[in-house]
């Protein structure tokens, strides 16, 4: 019996549009939860009958990231503004030094104020800061949460471990910007990983390479530096001898 989860596939296609955080986002989130529940139910149903559910087992659930809706007629805002420009470009003419910056002025005038006035200013500033902290600029929610919300199914220890490998590789899957846009969609490599019981990668071997050297050397350094957790003891042998196959793709 094979179940192909087509609902999830169609969701994936719609993802880019949903990032703007509109009503469709909620639709996706709800559908996603339903689908996950469905998969979970299917998995449980298919388990051998004698297996019991361990109520003490923790089920990690990440929070769904929430955000305040922005009027779609308004221009978008950046929530993480780019860092301010570097002061020095090449051969920039020097700015006139005599001009005091506004910040200096404020400091100076503050020094001349009475203590009471300073206290008032300080409390004003604190209020400002407090207000700034709650300005609706930042989307609310758990910063470590996934934009789509996740659940992790740990009904099977090996499955959980494979998922952990996947996460570790995924979060370190960085490629040089220098790879031309025209080649990016054709990048593909397959590699076998053999993992020691302590989680160290004992060996890796490419079974399919890509001619782009920037791509291959990025994978090389990824596999040399990535930290994997130790596999579950019962499965350690399998991961050491059979290994896992990883396909890197665009």
């Amino acid at each position: 019996m094979g179940i192909e989860d087509t609902v999830n596939t169609s969701l994936a296609k719609e993802r880019p549009r949903k990032r703007s955080g509109n009503r469709g986002f909620w639709l996706t989130a709800i559908l996603s939860l339903l689908v996950h529940a469905g998969i979970g139910a299917a998995a449980l149903y298919a388990q051998p009958k004698r297996q019991t559910i361990d109520l003490n087992r923790a089920i990690p659930v990440q929070l769904v990231k929430l955000g305040k809706k922005r009027d779609p007629k308004l221009l978008p805002r950046i929530y993480e503004p780019p860092p301010p420009p570097k002061d020095e470009g090449v051969a920039l003419a020097k700015e006139e030094k005599s001009q005091p910056t506004p910040k200096d002025e404020r400091k100076k005038s503050k020094d001349e104020l009475s203590d009471a006035a300073k206290r008032m200013l300080d409390s004003d500033r604190r209020l400002d800061e407090a207000l700034r902290r709650v300005t609706p600029d930042d989307p609310e929610g758990d910063p470590s949460g996934s934009e789509f919300g996740t659940t992790t199914d740990t009904t099977n220890a090996a499955a959980g471990y494979v998922a952990e490998i996947g996460r570790a590789l995924q979060s370190n899957y960085r490629l040089p910007e220098a790879i031309p846009a025209s080649q990016r969609k054709f990048l593909k490599a397959r590699v076998l990983l053999y993992i020691e019981p302590n989680g160290k990668i004992r060996e890796f071997a490419f079974v399919e390479e890509h001619p782009n050297q920037l791509f291959m050397s990025a994978l090389d350094s990824l596999l040399k530096t990535v930290q994997l957790p130790a596999p579950p003891a019962a499965e350690a042998k399998r991961f050491q001898n059979d290994g896992v196959e990883v396909v890197f793709r665009p």
């Binding site: 094979g2 299917a42 998995a43 388990q47 090996a158």
Partner: peptide, 19 residues
């Protein structure tokens, strides 16, 4: 985000993480 569930499930590695 395709998730395929193979049977028998005792052998399957079920993976539904959506990182």
């Amino acid at each position: 985000q395709v998730t395929r569930i193979q049977t028998p499930l005792t052998l399957a590695l079920l993976c539904t993480f959506l990182v």
